[in-house]
């Protein structure tokens, strides 16, 4: 299946779940509604023609207006690859965990929670791991986050 065929296949079979986007420059890109995420991921993994069983990458982006959560998935057997994203408002951002479909999502979701403040439902192990344990200065990967200023030592008289 080439990339165009993949796009057509998904457009015909999962039209209600995934909307194609034209921002993807190489691999096909789709948009998924946040409440259908679990359904979509399970369908993509279990589809006989796709078998997208490999989570390459997953991350959040802050576009200043909203969060985009991008899932890059691939298949070991059918060698296909596609991306899909969830767009969600800035306030009270929350997604479902896809660990049940791709266990690899565990740390990616943890990182997202830690650096962006996006809550992950049903994660089970939301603990800090990249930032210090006593970190209380917000979520550093958000665009509105500023590095805490340098504190200059007072000059000694």
């Amino acid at each position: 299946m080439t990339r165009d065929q993949l796009k057509d296949y998904i457009g015909s079979k999962y039209a209600s779940l995934m909307t194609p986007l034209d921002t993807g420059r190489f691999d096909p890109m789709f948009e998924v509604k946040a409440d259908r995420l679990f359904e979509v991921s399970r369908a993509l993994r279990d589809d006989e023609n796709l078998k997208l069983d490999f989570l390459c990458n997953m991350h959040a982006t802050d576009t200043r207006e909203n969060f985009e959560i991008v899932y890059s998935i691939a298949s070991i057997t059918t060698k296909l690859r596609l991306d899909f994203k969830i767009v969600m408002p800035y306030q009270n951002a929350e997604i479902d965990s896809v660990q049940e479909v791709w266990p690899a999502a565990n740390w990616y979701e943890r990182e997202m929670w830690e650096l962006f403040g996006i809550n992950v439902k049903n994660h089970g192990n939301l603990k800090r791991f990249l930032l210090p344990d006593d970190w209380n200065q917000g979520h550093p990967m958000r665009k509105d986050w500023d590095a805490p200023d340098f504190v200059r030592m007072p000059e000694i008289q």
Partner: peptide
């Protein structure tokens, strides 16, 4: 140009 890509 505006757009997104994941290369591996």
């Amino acid at each position: 140009p505006a757009g997104e890509v994941y290369s591996r």
